[in-house]
Design a protein around this nucleic acid. Sequence first.
DNA 1: ACTAATTTTGTAATGATTACAACTTAAAAC
DNA 2: GTTTTAAGTTGTAATCATTACAAAATTAGT
Lengths: 140, 140
Amino acid sequence: MPNDAVLKAHGIKPSLTRMMIFEYLKTAQKHPNVDEIYQALQSRIPTLSKTTVYNTLHLFTEKSIARAVMLKDQENRYDLAAHPHAHFQCLHCNEVFDVAMMPDFDLNQLMPNHEIQDVSVLISGVCETCKAKEAAQKSS
Amino acid sequence: MPNDAVLKAHGIKPSLTRMMIFEYLKTAQKHPNVDEIYQALQSRIPTLSKTTVYNTLHLFTEKSIARAVMLKDQENRYDLAAHPHAHFQCLHCNEVFDVAMMPDFDLNQLMPNHEIQDVSVLISGVCETCKAKEAAQKSS
DNA sequence: ACTAATTTTGTAATGATTACAACTTAAAAC
DNA sequence: GTTTTAAGTTGTAATCATTACAAAATTAGT
């Protein structure tokens, strides 16, 4: 489905700015924060303002095509809400990776009378790469 | 185990201030943020500074007797790390509840070469009370 | 007591986020 | 195809949690 169709399908008028922010979220191989999105698109949209990035992300979040990722650095990062997944944040290099998906917990049984809208899972630890580096240093 | 013993066991010198912040975290039936802790203890520790609260919570987090709860309001809240549990935040009244515990995912199988230190689960939706209120309003 | 180390404090800086009003662009009405 | 209205975008200033940092106070070791 082309980008404008995705936006329209969620009740968002596909302005050029919105399309480009959406496209960036879709193709960027990371979990960008507001400033990263702003910096990345500034060259192509010279009049872009940070407020617009905030506005657009709030809109995307509200319309459920993006969601805020809660991380320890206390700065919102965003990714597309398309496929539910967990996040792994390395405490050494600070990189964030997607984790395929958690098995579905039987939340409705745990909390029968609550309406569950979203589940965020953040796993933290040390990533493969950092572990390898540490091991290499120790043995040298 | 008395509070000072808990602190000592984690390598923290049990100063009066630290004991009182620990005690507050233990007994408060909520997930206080820094300001709430500060306000609550100010009457008993008149010279208390907010920086001290920040310092102490960082220390507690580092020594693993407390942990930062990641919530959508973008303001750190803390609870004791004692028994692992998930959090439920109501999107209407903003209240936060503990959820017994998630079944343990087989994370090590999902991410074989990573070292997992912590898993945070945040569930959001509408709580029992808010749902009941809504239902009552509709039927009136 | 004396010195050194630790703990606590207050003020100032940082930096993400929001408020808000002006401006610009696009759509609708005529 | 103007005019009117609504929607989208922008820039500046304010807010507020958090951090940096250095001084002051307290505690522990000698």
